[in-house]
Amino acid sequence: MAVIAKDGYIDLVRDRVENFHGNQLVYVGWDDHLLFSAAQAFPLPPEMPFQTLVSEVMASVFNDHPDFQKIDWERAEWVLDGESFSPAMEASLKENGIGHKSLIRFKTPGLKGINGLRL
C-alpha cells in the first residue's frame, strides 16, 4: 500500500547497500549472553572470510565476556536469517550466503553466560 502522507514525499531507500562504501551491514547476536543487550551491527566487505568475522570482528566486541575465550567453535550452532546453517570458515561472507542486513545468531553449547544465567 502506498504511503499516506503529505505531498512532497520522495522515493528513498536510505540503507541500500550502495550507501555503505563497498561494505554490507551484518548483525551478529550471541544467544544466552544478554550482557550484550542487543545484536551488534558491523559494516563488512562481502569478501571477508567467515573466519575473520569470528576471530576479529566478533572478538572485538564479544571478547569482553569471559565466555568468549572458552568457546569451542566446532560445537557452535549458527542461525542465518532464521535458518540454521553451517558456515564454511574459509569462505567469504557472500559465499556463505550472508547478504546485506543479514542477521547471524549463534549459540555456544555448554556456555550459558555469567553464573549460567544467560547473561
Partner: peptide, 27 residues
Amino acid sequence: QKGLPQLCQVCQIPMVFTEVQTDPMQI
C-alpha cells in the same frame, strides 16, 4: 561495550526487547 547495537527499523530503539510472554531472556 565497544560495538554499536542493531536498531529497530520503526521505533529505532536498540533491539533489546525480549519475548516476555514465552522466554524473557530471548531477544
